[in-house]
Write a protein that binds this DNA or RNA. Structure first.
Length: 891
RNA sequence: GCCGGAGUGGCGAAAUGGCAGACGCGCCGGAUUCAAAAUCCGGUAGGUGUAAAAACCUGUGUGGGUUCGAGUCCCACCUCCGGUACCA
C-alpha cells in the first residue's frame, strides 16, 4: 500500500471495531471513573446526514476516545428521535406507513454515522418509536399523571439537599372535608384538578395546515416553527403538564450547572419569574358601600378567590397605585359582561369578537397601535377611593397574571401608548432621582425607572423600592392585596392530533348514552405499551379531531371489569416526549421490568458532557429537566439535574457565509466528503475549522489542507514507495535525542490541555507542527512516533489504528494509555526575551533560562540595539519579568 | 426596543495584560519531472528604506481612558450574528 489509502484503512478498522465490539461499555465497573458523554440524538430525516451533525459528534467522539485512554469507563450512545410530522406527511402523500419510512431513514443515518467511525456503543441504540421504548415514555407519563405538587413540602432528597416543594403521589393529596363529603366522584375530580398532567379547555394554537395544536414554544410570530404555517387561536380540550409548579426549581437549580451562561440566561428569561402584588379593585356599581366592603376585608383578610364583583389585578409596581387612571381587562375576562353598560354593550361585543379571531400574528402585527374599548364600568382604587374607568384591550393577556391590570400611563410604556391613543389622563407619581432629578417629562414618554413617590399623599418622597414593600404590606394588612409571584412560563400543552406520536395510556369513562363523564382511568403499567391502531389513510381530519379517532372500535372502546364503558384518549404526545428521557434509557436500554435499573442510574447519571445545537436552549432542555425533576421527586432518579455540562456547537455555514439550505444551493454533503477525502479528513477538518462553539463557514480547500496533513503523517511513518505497508527507512528503533523528546513532550502537553479545553483546532495545529518538524528528521525514533500516533488517535482514529499496527502492535490502541508529558523535557536551556524601550519593541535577546530579574536586565543592557536607545537618556524605570520581557522606561 | 456574542492579513483562524498574525488555505518563487499530477524547499500584514541586509514607521471595527506595556481591562459609539418582544 504505497499511498495513504483511506478507503481501505477506514473500512478495515470500522469492521474491526464492530466485530470486536471495541466500544461496548460495561455498566458499573468498580475502580474506574465513569464518563457519560452524550450527543443530542438526531431526528432521522429523509435528507440524511448534514455537515452540522458530525461537528458535535466528532467533538464528543474525541472526548470519549481520549477518556478511554485516560482509563475511564465511557458511555457513548446513539439513538433516534424518530416520531414527528415529516414521516407522517410522507405517509399522507405516498400511503406508506410512517414506521416504514422512519426505519428506512434510520438505516441511512446509521450507515452514515458508522461511516464516520464514531466510537458509539451500538448495542445501546434506541429509537423513540420502538414500542419497547415508548412503553416507558407512556409509563413516565403515568408517573406525571399520578403526581401532584405539594408546594409546602420541605424535604431532603437523595442528593442531601433540602428543598421546598415536591411532586408527591396523588393518593397523598389532602382532600378537603366538603369534597370528601360530596362522594367518590367529587374526590376523583378534585384529584384530577391537582395532577401534574391534566385536561384543560383553553385557547390553544391550532395550525390547520399541520392539523395539530402547537405549544407556545413551537409558535413564532404567529406561525408554526415547523413549516411556517399560520396558527390560529381556538378553544380546545387539551392535555397540559404543570411545568409551572417547577418554575422556581427550574430557574434556581440552573446555577449549579456548567452550561453556557447565555443558555442559562435564556432559560431564566423563558421562565420569567416576577415578584409583585395582587390588588383587589371593587367594581363601583356593586351592592353596598365601598367602606363597608373594606371593613369586611379588614376583618376577613385577603381572600383566595375574590368576590364576584371584584377585579383582581397583578402588578410589579404597587408603588404606582396613585397613578392609576384606568384599568384593562383581557377581552376574555369573566367580569367583562358584568362591567359593560347597556350603551357600551355593542362596542364591547364587537371588540371581543375581533380579538377572539385574531391569531398571535395579528396581535403582534398590530402592536404598533393599541386597540381597546371602554366598558362603561368603573372600579374603585383601594388606595384613594377614586373611580377608575375599566376598559378591555387585547394588550392584556388572559393567560398571564390575573388577566386584568391597573393602568399607570405615567410609568408604563404600554399604558402610556394606550392612554395617548385614547386621550386618557396621565398622572405622574414617580419622580426621577440622582443625576436626572427633577420632574419627568411625561409629554413624550413614560418614566419607567425607579425614583421617589410624588402625588401619592402621605407616601410622597418614599423611594420606589421601599414604597413597593410598604404599600403591599399596608394593603395586605387591610385584606386588599397580597404579595404575588408570576411566571412568563405557561403550563406545557402536551397533546397533538397526529398519528405518529405516542398514544396516551388513558381512557375516558362513558355514561349510559355514550357521552364522556369527565372521569378517566389509565392503562395499568404492565399493560403498556399502548400501540398505534391500524389506520387506512394518513390524511389529517381537517378538524381538531385527532387522527387516532379514525381507529377502529376495537381500539377505541372497551368495557372495564366493573362494566363501565370506556373510550380511549385519541390525542398523541408531542415529539418532545421521547427526547425528554432518552439519556436515561441509554444506560439500560434492554430492561423489560424497569425504565432504568436504579443501580445503573446511580452509576451513569448525570450526563458528564452533553453537546448539541443551541436551538434546543429552551425547549428540549427545559422539558427534559422538568421530567427529570418529577422523576427525582418520585424517587425514580437520584440526581436533581440530568446534564451536568452542556456545550453548544456553532453552526456551520455554507461556503458563501450564509446558512446552508437547499434554496441557497450551498449545502455540503458529508457523505461526498468522505468519499473523496475520507472520514478522518472530514472529522479533522470539522475540528480544525475553528472553536467548537463558534459559527464558521465551510471551506472545501480547508478539507484539502487536513487531508494533506494526514498524508504527511502517513509518509512520516510509512514507506510510500514500498509494495506493502512497511515502515519508512527513517524510522528506527533507537533512543530519541533530547531535542526529539522535547518536541514530543511539548506536543503531548499542548494536545492534552487543548482536548481538556475542547480546543480541538489548536490541538490539531500542534500535531501539524510536530509532523512538520519530525518529517525533517532523517532518523525518527519509533517510540516517539508511537506516542504521537496515540495523540492523533482520538482525532483520526482509522489512520492512527493503521499506523499503530504498522508500528508492530497487535491490539487496538483504543485502550492504550494516553501519553504523559514529562516536565523534565520541557525545560529550555535558553529563552528568547523581547526588550522594550518605553514600551516599544527594540530588540530580542537570547539568554539562559531561569535568570533573575536583575540578571535579565544586565543581559538586556548589553544588547547593541538597546544601548543605542538608552545612550544619553535617563532610564526612569526598568521592568524585568524573569523569562518574559524587559522594559526600559527612558526620558 | 431590550438582552447576549463577535469584529484581527486575500480567507479559516492563533495569542495566562508582555515578541500580533502560530497552524492551515490561497498566492509567489524554486526543486523533482520529457511534461503534468502528487510531493518537497523557500517567501508571504502594509509601508519607508537597502544592491541585499540592518533599521524604522503604521497596523487587531471607531474614538477616548487605565497601565511601564492593551487584540486582551474600563467608558462611549458603529457594524454583523443569535435570542427575545405587549408577561403588567
Amino acid at each position: 500500500m504505497p499511498r495513504y489509502d483511506f478507503k481501505k484503512i477506514e473500512s478495515r478498522w470500522q469492521q474491526f471495531w464492530e466485530q470486536n465490539q471495541t466500544f461496548q461499555a460495561a455498566d458499573c465497573v468498580p475502580g474506574k471513573p465513569k464518563m457519560y458523554v452524550l450527543d443530542m440524538f438526531p431526528y432521522p430525516s429523509g435528507e440524511g446526514l448534514h455537515v452540522g451533525h458530525p461537528e458535535g459528534y466528532t467533538a464528543t467522539d474525541i472526548v470519549c476516545r481520549y477518556s478511554r485512554m485516560k482509563g475511564m469507563n465511557v458511555l457513548h450512545p446513539m439513538g433516534w428521535d424518530a416520531f414527528g410530522l415529516p414521516a407522517e406527511e410522507f405517509a399522507r402523500q405516498k400511503g406508506i406507513h410512517p414506521r416504514i419510512k422512519t426505519e428506512e431513514n434510520i438505516s441511512t443515518f446509521r450507515r452514515q454515522l458508522k461511516m464516520l467511525g464514531f466510537s458509539y456503543d451500538w448495542s445501546r441504540e434506541l429509537s423513540t418509536t420502538d414500542p419497547d421504548y415508548y412503553r416507558w415514555t407512556q409509563w413516565i407519563f403515568l408517573q406525571i399523571y399520578d403526581t401532584w405538587y405539594d408546594s409546602h413540602c420541605v424535604w431532603t432528597g437523595p442528593d442531601g439537599v433540602q428543598r421546598q416543594g415536591r411532586g408527591r403521589p396523588i393518593s397523598e393529596l389532602p382532600i378537603p372535608q366538603d369534597v370528601q363529603a360530596a362522594g367518590q366522584d367529587a374526590v376523583r375530580r378534585y384529584q384530577d384538578r391537582h395532577r401534574l398532567a391534566y385536561l384543560s379547555e383553553a385557547p390553544v394554537n391550532w395550525c390547520p395546515e399541520l392539523g395539530t395544536v402547537l405549544a407556545n414554544e413551537e409558535v413564532i410570530d404567529g406561525r408554526s416553527e415547523r413549516g411556517d404555517h399560520p396558527v390560529v387561536r381556538l378553544k380546545l380540550k387539551q392535555w397540559m403538564l404543570r411545568i409551572t409548579s417547577y418554575a422556581d426549581r427550574l430557574a434556581e437549580e440552573l446555577s449549579e450547572l456548567s452550561w453556557p451562561e447565555s443558555i442559562k440566561y435564556m432559560q431564566r428569561n423563558w421562565i420569567g419569574r416576577s415578584v409583585g402584588a395582587e390588588v383587589d379593585f371593587r367594581i363601583a356599581a356593586s351592592e353596598g358601600s365601598f367602606e363597608k366592603w373594606t371593613e369586611g376585608r379588614q376583618a376577613a383578610g385577603f381572600m383566595n378567590e375574590a368576590e364576584a364583583d371584584v377585579i383582581r389585578i397583578y402588578t410589579t409596581r404597587p408603588d404606582t397605585l396613585f397613578g392609576v387612571t384606568y384599568m384593562v381587562l383581557a377581552p376574555e375576562h369573566a367580569l367583562v359582561d358584568r362591567l359593560t353598560t347597556p350603551e357600551r354593550k355593542h362596542a364591547v361585543e364587537e371588540y371581543r369578537q375581533t380579538a377572539s379571531l385574531k391569531s398571535d400574528l395579528d396581535r403582534t402585527d398590530l402592536a404598533k397601535g393599541k386597540t381597546g374599548v371602554f366598558t362603561g364600568g368603573y372600579a374603585i382604587n383601594p388606595v384613594n377611593g377614586e373611580r377608575v374607568p375599566v376598559w378591555i384591550a387585547d394588550y392584556v393577556l388572559i393567560s398571564y397574571g390575573t388577566g386584568a391590570i391597573m393602568a399607570v400611563p405615567g410609568h408604563d410604556e404600554r399604558d402610556y401608548e394606550f392612554a395617548k391613543a385614547f386621550e386618557i389622563p396621565i398622572v405622574q407619581v414617580v419622580a426621577p432621582v440622582g443625576a436626572q432629578a427633577g420632574p419627568a417629562d411625561l409629554q413624550t414618554a413614560a418614566f419607567t425607572e425607579y425614583g421617589v413617590a410624588v402625588n401619592s399623599g402621605i407616601w410622597n418622597g418614599t423611594p420606589t423600592a421601599d414604597f413597593k414593600i410598604s404599600i403591599t404590606a399596608e394593603l395586605s394588612a387591610r385584606g386588599l392585596a397580597r404579595e404575588a409571584v408570576n411566571y412568563r412560563l405557561r403550563d406545557w400543552l402536551f397533546s397533538r392530533q397526529r398519528y405518529w406520536g405516542e398514544p396516551f395510556p388513558v381512557w375516558h369513562e362513558l355514561d349510559a348514552d355514550g357521552n364522556p363523564t369527565g372521569l378517566m382511568r389509565t392503562d395499568s403499567p404492565d399493560s403498556l405499551p399502548v400501540l398505534h391502531p391500524h389506520v387506512e389513510d394518513f390524511k389529517p381530519t381537517g378538524t381538531p379531531e385527532p387522527m387516532l379517532s379514525k381507529a377502529g372500535d376495537d381500539w377505541l372502546y372497551r368495557t372495564d371489569k366493573d362494566g363501565v364503558r370506556l373510550k380511549r384518549e385519541t390525542n398523541s404526545m408531542p415529539q418532545w416526549a421521547g427526547s425528554c428521557w432518552y439519556y436515561l434509557r441509554f444506560c439500560d436500554n434492554r430492561n423489560s421490568v424497569n425504565f432504568i435499573d436504579p443501580e445503573k442510574e446511580k452509576y451513569w447519571l448525570p450526563v458528564d458532557l452533553y453537546i448539541g445545537g443551541a436551538e434546543h436552549a429552551v425547549l428540549h432542555l427545559l422539558y427534559s429537566r422538568f421530567w427529570h425533576k418529577v422523576l427525582f421527586d418520585r424517587g425514580h432518579v437520584s440526581h436533581p439535574e440530568p446534564f451536568k455540562r452542556l456545550v453548544n456547537q456553532g453552526m456551520i455555514l455554507g461556503e458563501n457565509g450564509e446558512k446552508m439550505s437547499k434554496s441557497r444551493g450551498n449545502v455540503v454533503n458529508p457523505e461526498r466528503v468522505v468519499e473523496h477525502r475520507g472520514a478522518d479528513a472530514l472529522r479533522l477538518y470539522e475540528m480544525f475549522m475553528g472553536p467548537l462553539e463558534q459559527v464558521k463557514p465551510w471551506q472545501t480547500s480547508g478539507v484539502e489542507g487536513v487531508y494533506r496533513f494526514l498524508g504527511r503523517v502517513w509518509r512520516m511513518i510509512i514507506d510510500d514507495r514500498a509494495e506493502d505497508v512497511s515502515l519508512d527507512e527513517a524510522v528506527h528503533d533507537i533512543a530519541p535525542t533530547h531535542e526529539q523528546l522535547r518536541l514530543l513532550h511539548r506536543t503531548i502537553r499542548a494536545v492534552t490541555e487543548d482536548i481538556e479545553r475542547l480546543a480541538f483546532n489548536t490541538a490539531i495545529s500542534r500535531m501539524m507542527e510536530f509532523t512538520n518538524e519530525m518529517t525533517e528528521q532523517t532518523v525518527r525514533p519509533k517510540s516517539v512516533l508511537e506516542s504521537f500516533v496515540l495523540l492523533l488517535a482520538p482525532f483520526a482514529p482509522h489512520l492512527a489504528e493503521e499506523l499503530w499496527a504498522a508500528l508492530g502492535h497487535q491490539q487496538t490502541l483504543a485502550y492504550e494509555s494516553w501519553p504523559v508529558s514529562d516536565p523534565a523535557y520541557l525545560v529550555e536551556d535558553t529563552v528568547e526575551v523581547p526588550v522594550q524601550i518605553s514600551g516599544k519593541l527594540r530588540g530580542r535577546i537570547v539568554v539562559p533560562a531561569g535568570l533573575s530579574a536583575a540578571e535579565l536586565q544586565a543581559f538586556a543592557e548589553a544588547d547593541q540595539n538597546v544601548q543605542k536607545y538608552i545612550e544619553g537618556k535617563a532610564v526612569v524605570k526598568v521592568i524585568a519579568v524573569p523569562g518574559r520581557m524587559v522594559n526600559f522606561v527612558v526620558r
